[in-house]
């Protein structure tokens, strides 16, 4: 069905892409560290080329070609009109089918829904994560180190397993509902809806918010706070004027690291949401695996990558030094 024999110009495109990328890395390392040190970067460069640059170029190649390898923009029309293939067929069938031609909004709706869920997830993670990071970084709190460990331990387990564990908690005959019934209450439906999906996302991504904030807070010199208080700031003003602004890089980094995987979430909607609503990741998966349409799947992936790059760019403006230690 799909072979990976590419036309000559795709190879040229890939070659040029690689050359530019390698050149860029070598030049930038040499400028900063001299020739010898640039050699140390070569394993990483090679890794990046094989596993990041080449796949990206392949995605771009498939997104702009049809099944026969000819250039086309049709795949992006599929994004805008999810009924595109269907409508094309109806158009050839004569007037009696004209009524069936409608624009399908599935792909756009799913993208909007995914962005909205990712936004909610990021806000909730920030609201939960910032106070947690404050506790963890506070040197007067003995319990801080314990909380750090408690956050890390679940991450030793694979996220699929953790999500399936939530399923056995939330099911209608799961642990929580069985406990409620034991106490004489009515059971409640906790699963198979968007709230359960959101819960699963927050649970899985919260550590990615907490740790960057924790890192930037624990790097803060406690003397700064003391100085602010000496100069007449109360606790609240010390926080709003000193601690919060200085922890901003961590917050930015946390937001990025939560927002990105949230937008691309799949599997969680299927497990905790009962497959009742798709997210963009599920949609891309079904394009590749069910429909076997790599071209439209790649176009959808590209649209998502561009959105993520844009949001990264905006965040970078807010944290130009990249002090948060994240990937922004």
């Amino acid at each position: 069905m799909y072979n990976v024999s590419l036309p000559w110009w795709a190879w040229v495109m890939m070659g040029v892409g690689l050359a530019v990328f390698v050149g860029f890395i070598i030049l930038s390392v040499r400028r900063n560290h001299g020739v010898k040190r640039s050699l140390f970067a070569s394993p990483y460069t090679l890794w990046m080329i094989i596993f990041t640059v080449v796949p990206c170029i392949l995605v771009a190649y498939y997104a702009f070609t049809d099944a026969n390898g000819a250039f086309t923009l049709d795949n992006f029309r599929h994004f805008w009109d999810s009924n595109h293939a269907k409508n094309e067929l109806y158009a050839t069938m004569g007037d009696e089918y004209a009524g069936y031609i409608t624009r399908g909004t599935v792909n756009v709706d799913t993208l909007v829904y995914s962005l909205w869920m990712a936004f909610l997830c990021t806000v909730i993670c920030l609201l939960l994560g910032y106070p947690a990071a404050l506790f963890m970084a506070d040197r007067n709190m003995k319990i801080g180190a314990t909380i750090v460990v408690l956050f890390i331990i679940p991450m030793w387990m694979n996220f699929l397993l953790r999500t399936i564990a939530w399923m056995s908690l939330l099911e209608d005959n799961g642990l929580i509902n069985s406990f409620l019934r034991l106490l004489g209450f009515e059971g409640v439906q906790l699963m198979y809806n968007s709230s359960a999906v959101l819960l699963g996302m927050v649970y899985n991504f919260l550590p990615f918010m907490v740790f960057p904030i924790y890192t930037s807070l624990s790097k803060l010199d406690p003397k700064l706070g003391e100085a602010a208080q000496d100069l007449g700031c109360n606790e609240w003003r010390t926080f709003t004027r000193v601690t919060a602004p200085l922890s901003l890089p961590g917050v930015i980094s946390g937001i990025t690291m939560v927002f990105m995987p949230s937008v691309t979430t799949f599997f969680i909607p299927r497990i905790l949401g009962g497959g009742n609503t798709m997210m963009f990741g599920d949609l891309i998966e079904s394009k590749f695996l069910t429909e076997g349409n790599w071209n439209v799947g790649s176009a959808l992936s590209m649209i998502m990558m561009i959105l993520i790059l844009l949001s990264l760019g905006i965040l970078r403006k807010a944290d130009p030094e990249g002090e948060g230690g994240g990937i922004a």
């Binding site: 999810s82 293939a85 067929l89 599935v106 079904s286 429909e291």
Partner: peptide
């Protein structure tokens, strides 16, 4: 299959 996929998406 693209026809089916469009319907199923809806």
């Amino acid at each position: 299959i693209a026809f089916y996929e469009a319907l199923w998406g809806e």
